[in-house]
Write a protein that binds this DNA or RNA. Structure first.
Lengths: 218, 218, 218, 218
DNA sequence: AATGAATGAGCATTCATTCAT
DNA sequence: TATGAATGAATGCTCATTCAT
């Protein structure tokens, strides 16, 4: 009986914890990290502010958890994509495309996760997850290297470079209106606006050229 | 007699402005952008808070100036490198190498400028400077594209990707001790530590492969 | 168990809100609107500054509430008076008298509400309340105009004029000691001090003459 | 020689003082009392901020002087009007019209002088000048009372009432757009917008009815 | 366990006033 | 005498965190 109650309580606790995280994630998507206040999260989760502290001892703690949740979500999708497709090339193409497509579809979250200002206490987490992302691609790069279809390269470094290249391109693209108005960004002005598909293709092609041997890409 | 802005006064003004900027920069390095409060800057510069506003009309203004101070040097160096060398390929290689080498030499600042959290009011500035950097490379990419030695590609996008690829790699490399301790980053562990030169070469090669036609790279 | 807003809590909330308003009102009376700072209100209400913001989202909001608190009583009294009396003339006389009598009884507050400097963000509110007052009289004026016992006149304008005439007279009267000492105000000096009743009568008569046809006034 | 120099200096001092006052007045017209900062006045007067303190020991001092300047200007115009015209009625009509017309033509200044928020340290001055205005009309009222063409009334009180009636009407009219949008000001809505001439006529008529015997007004 | 009212340090910004030059 | 740089107290407002109920 007592055991049961405990189990039920634990389930409930987990549910609330999940709800808080979900709402926090949503809040970031809607308002950026700046809008992520304990009060707002509590209100959206329909609990009291104090209650949030039952589940997360800190705001930083909560942030880290949100980060993890959001990132894992994305990483899972990329990992899944990297497991589909017959050849390693197909798998890499698939995972890169997934990464880019998802980020482009929800630029606010992508932006928040990659580039948006967060408290310095989160940086460690951010860096850890950057590495996680890199890992995702590193596995594939390693495979391709072994198969002699990718260039010989320090795969972990290249993987990081892939993540950086994609992230930066997406950030820049999501904020192009700002840049277009800026006198220095004349190169941006000289080009018509690309569709999301084109954008995605270009990014992925850039990445593939960097790691996959030319003859394999045809 | 009417008061004239003397040499002495002008010098003093410039000195104080420089002092503020220096202290702000130092503050960023020590505490991150988060620690950059007007009060702290004023205290460290040994002036009153109000005085800061004689030199910078805004906190954002001050930040922009710090940004500029820190970035201009870097961009100048890269631009200079892009003007040396006989062929476009040499020029691109030179500027990429310069970017990477300098960033690797002072990773803390590089990190702050590229990836550290800043107030949202600064994001525009950050993006502007990202664009400035991208522009630096975009010019070269355009030239190489015209000469048919670089792949046909939206140069501005590729330029952004180059910046992202390099920045990410450097950030990851500068914080490798964190990753090494992390269970998931097994790939990082499987590789011996690269020398800065090797690191730099690999990054540059990655970038070149992504934009320069294989036959040109030999 | 889930926390429910108890009667006790609600009462307490209302009490604190009332306390803030009371102290704010007192502060205005003692130091004018200029002395109405959040810090001062909080200190006098023996709460933290932040707490004030739980009850009023803005300083302006607080001011508006103080305004309302102070004004509503007055307006209610005037409206009530305008509903008593058989004829429209009696009703107008009654409400004008009520307005004047009450204002004369508490000139400090009347002064603050009508003439004291407030922050520009409050001007709208002040004007709104001026309008509210004007409205009170405008309704009666309209009625009298329809009955052909008041002059044909733009009633809203006349109503404003009535409010202005009464307010100014009261302000001047409440501060006569200043004027008496002033060399230029010889006319003030040439008249003996009027009793409050006489004062009130004169003001009301002035107003009536301005709007009510002479033959009706006899 | 020494005497001459002093004279010239004094003239110069007076000129600068006048310039400061003029610019301050203009500043009020353009930006309201809130925009009246020492720095702004100094800049517009093309002198240093510190220099302002050579001519006015306080900001309050300066404000008082501006007030006096601006008010005297207006009062002079009204007094002048009160001296033209053959009959006392004409003179009163003239001065009322002058007051209203000038205030309506430059509502910002009128508004600032009569109703805009200023520091409490200015209130005494404001009240003094209110009295001055009242005096202007009181003289005429006295004359008309003696001639048995105006009602028997405490002239100083009536004079204040005239000023109040006109000021309030003008303030309300100058800010009608605010009130029109407000749900409570339905009376304002029910009336088409009056031309400045009509407005002026109505105000003056209101005032005349309040003080001049009906048979004299015809 | 949950609540949410209360806290108060912290922040950017303004501006009258002073004073060394 | 004029200058204008420097001052720093003051203000409105935010929000992570605590704690009595």
């Amino acid at each position: 009986m007592a055991y049961r109650a405990t189990r039920r309580t634990e389930t409930r606790k987990a549910e609330i914890r999940a709800r808080i995280l979900r709402q926090a994630r949503q809040l970031i998507i809607e308002t950026g990290f700046r809008g992520l206040t304990i009060a707002a999260v509590a209100a959206r989760s329909e609990i009291a502010t104090g209650t949030v502290y039952r589940y997360f001892s800190n705001k930083a703690d909560l942030c880290v958890a949100v980060f993890e949740l959001a990132t894992e979500h994305e990483i899972d999708a990329v990992v899944l994509a990297s497991q589909q497709g017959d050849s390693t090339l197909e798998q890499l193409t698939g995972s890169l495309t997934t990464f880019a497509r998802r980020a482009l579809r929800n630029p606010t979250l992508a932006y928040a996760l990659i580039a948006e200002p967060v408290g310095p206490e989160l940086e460690e987490t951010r860096l850890r997850y950057r590495s996680l992302w890199a890992d995702t691609f590193a596995t594939l790069l390693e495979k391709g290297k072994d198969q002699r279809i990718f260039y010989s390269q320090p795969t972990y470094l290249s993987a990081a470079a892939l993540v950086g290249a994609m992230a930066e391109t997406i950030v820049i693209s999501s904020t192009q209106q700002i840049n277009r108005n800026h006198p220095n960004s004349n190169h941006a002005n000289s080009q018509r606006k690309l569709s999301q598909t084109e954008l995605c293709n270009h990014i992925v092609n850039f990445c593939l050229r960097a790691v996959v041997k030319t003859e394999v890409l045809i």
